[in-house]
Structure formats: C-alpha cells, structure tokens
Design a protein around this nucleic acid. Structure first.
Lengths: 225, 225
DNA sequence: TAGATTGTTAATCGATTAACAATC
DNA sequence: TAGATTGTTAATCGATTAACAATC
C-alpha cells in the first residue's frame, strides 16, 4: 500500500512531463469538440510540431496504449492525464492585484479544465476594493489570511506592479502560502520551501524576436546563393 | 563579411538560450536598481535556482568574461545580451482583442526593455472600438492591414476568446503576419513558415499542482519513517 | 494477407556536472 | 602569497532519434 501511494506520482523525464501538459491541453480541446474518438501519433505530432516517434515514446510512460492503424482513444488518454495531473483534486487559488492582468485571470474560464478555482481577488487600492471582477468582489489585503484559512489556499497569483511584487511575496510567505504564481518580471526572493512559478511573458516575445531574426537570416543566405 | 553577418546569430545550446533570457531579465533588473556593478556566478545561481557552474558554462558562450574574485560586469554583460537578442532593433507589435488580457498587455511597461513596442490594439466589438486602452485607441479589425503595412508589423498578440482564436489567426496569416503570440489555449493551425509562440498560462499552474503534490508526498513519506 | 501504425530497444546526440588549471 | 573565483576540458547523465518487431 505504501508503494501504491508512492507510485501515484510517477517519474517521467522532465522533458516528457512538459509535453504531457501540451498533450493534455490538446486532448481537452479535442474532447470538447467531439469530432473524433481516436487520434494517431502522427496527427498529434503535426499539431504540436514534434515527431510522432516522440509522441509514442512519451505515451509509452503511460498506462494507456494505442491500437495500430487506429490510434489512441482520446477520452481514455485524457482521463489518464487528468488523473496524473490531479485535475479532479480541485485547488483553490487567490489573486493579488485587481488590475487588468488580475482581472483577466479572474475571468478566465479554463481553470476548471485543470482543477483550479479562483476563490478571491485582492487589491491594496481602496478604490478597487468592493468593485466586482467577474463574479468576485475585490477584497482588501488584510482579508488574505482569513480567506487562505477558510478555503485552504496554497497557491497565489501575484499580479501587482513590479515594485510591489517582492513586498507582496513576503506577506504571502508570512501567511504560510505554499506556491507563488508570479506574473511580474521581478525575480522573487523567497524561502526554498516555497514554490515559485515565473510567468514572465517577455520571454516568449524574446523567442519570437530570435526566430524572426533567424528566418530573416535564412532568407538572406538563400538569396545570396 | 558574409561570415561576419552569419555569425550575428550564434548557435547556443537550446537550453542555454532559454537561460540567457533569464539572465537578461535579471540583469535588466539589477541595472535599474544600480545597487552593484559586478555580480558573481554564485549570486546569479542562487537567484535563479541553478548552479554557479551552469552559469559560468553558459557565459562561456559569450564574449564577456568575468574576473576571478570580482565577478561579471553587469552593464557589460547586459549590453552583450541586449545585442544578442536584438533589443536595440525595435519591433512594432499589435494586439488583437481588447479585453482584460489585451489591455494588460497594451499597458505593460516592460516591452521597452526587450525592444518591442505596441503600436495598436484591435477588437471586433463595436462597443470597444474608439475606447482608450492606455494611450492607444481601440481600432476595428478592418484597420489591421493598414497598420501592419504602415508600421511594418511582423508580430501579433492574439488575446481573443478561445473560439475566435483560429479565425483571427487565419485572418492574420492572410495579412502576411510572420509571428503569432498566442495567448489563447487553443492550438492554432497555421502554415509552417508562420512562427507561433504559445503563451498558455495553464501550463504554469499544472507545474505548481505537480510540485505541490510532490512536496506533500515527501512530507507524507518522511512522517512515515 | 498486405500495409500501416504502435511500442520498445539500441544508438546517437545534447546538456549538465565534475574536476581542475588559470588568474585575479 | 593564499584563497577565491573564473573558464574549460572531460566524464556523466538524460533526451531524442533510428530501427524494427509486434499487432491490428
């Protein structure tokens, strides 16, 4: 029974784990569309711009298996991934910062697909407190501990301006928060047992810039030959 | 001279390139703070939760070198990374979708640090057209081709609801856009020569869920011994 | 049955870590 | 000078790709 319990979180290659998240998103989408019941590794590969061999290799770590010439059962695969990511075990999260970004997050409908729910949104600005964001009323920061206790909140999204991010993080750590979802570009300094997930969007744009530069370069070289 | 030109975009290990973006963000922050002129590989490593050896290995691909016992000159390192990422070559980008997320993006101040500028924001909703988002007036979709031509826009951020994302992508591809910065969770189907950068935020939350589950598991196991 | 696709093993490739000489 | 830190080479580790048998 112990070994059972321990096995619940399997050890995948880190790279595989990252792709499993992509498969999960794709399969969720396909499941909603209801257009097909099976999917080939080839089709998945094409949509995610990877190779079919890679897809099959990744799936070989799962219990679900595919049928030659038929592919993988979408519902079955999705169910296993849901289980794997603990989608059914709902996580209550809160948002600090009720600006545009915080509001966008609060209104985001996709959280239910990954077993998360936004239970409250906070702002230090008295002007914003009391206003509605979607179905939530903006609360003052002092209410954070109460909400955290009541809803067993472990994860907090920080959506405040750069210069307030560290301060808010310190506060949350003091309140016993386990994980910070950091939407500021500020590198946060927190104790080692607090999980920080940086969601610095500028990284994506840097990748685009780089890829654009590379394709320009290729064009230049080809025209030269 | 050809070889000069070709060398402008150096070949780094992919993993190193990803970390270079983190170093860039960190150094940008330190440069703004003006608290120190030099930084040790050890200090960088601690802030980014990697090893100092990794940092030095990554930097060995750069021209900038550090001084034993002194570290790396922050300005010098940042200047090289700026050059490397083409920060000085400004990129004009546009945003489609003037909801909370699009508005957050339009108001984001950090773009200048990575050589990007939002020149326009669009929405299909007539109610939103004409309203101000920061310093930009929301424009109707039909104005996209004009703006793209006038500002040489290559990159577009898609901030529309899930079910409109593919449609907008098709439109943009037809207008000759080179790169799509996709903020919807929808997997987009576009021609191979169009760059797509997916900014699916739910992935970060899945990582958090997984890390929380792992640390719970560790706690459980330790208490059992 | 023939052909297509899966799943797995082995080979290759790439990234990280370890070790240590060079240098301030 | 002694000690700390950098930078590089070699060793290890991990991930991807190739090859191919199994199977529908």
């Amino acid at each position: 029974m112990k070994s059972e319990k321990s096995k619940e979180i399997l050890k995948f290659p880190k790279a595989t784990f990252e792709r499993l998240k992509q498969y999960h998103a794709l399969l969720t989408q396909l499941e909603i569309e209801q257009k097909q019941r099976y999917i080939l590794s080839e089709e998945i590969a094409e949509m995610l711009k990877i190779t079919p061999e890679q897809v099959r290799k990744d799936f070989s770590y799962l219990k679900t298996s595919g049928k030659p010439k038929v592919g993988y059962n979408i519902s079955e695969l999705l169910a296993e991934l849901d289980e794997l990511f603990g989608i059914k075990a709902n996580d209550n999260i809160i948002i600090v910062g009720a600006g545009n970004l915080g509001s966008a997050l609060a209104n985001y409908k996709g959280f239910q697909n990954i077993g998360a729910r936004v239970v409250a949104i906070f702002d230090k600005d008295q002007e914003k407190v009391g206003k509605m964001v979607g179905e939530l009323m903006v609360l003052p920061l002092k209410d954070i501990p109460r909400v955290v206790r009541r809803f067993h909140v472990r994860t907090v999204a920080i959506c405040v301006p750069e210069d307030a991010a560290q301060q808010v993080a310190d506060l949350l750590v003091a309140y016993g928060i386990k994980a910070i979802w950091n939407f500021s570009t500020r590198i946060l300094d927190v104790p080692n047992d607090v999980i920080v997930q940086n969601e610095d969007i500028t990284r994506g744009l840097l990748s685009i810039k780089h890829m654009l530069a590379e394709s320009e370069k290729r064009k230049y070289e080809n025209s030269e030959v």
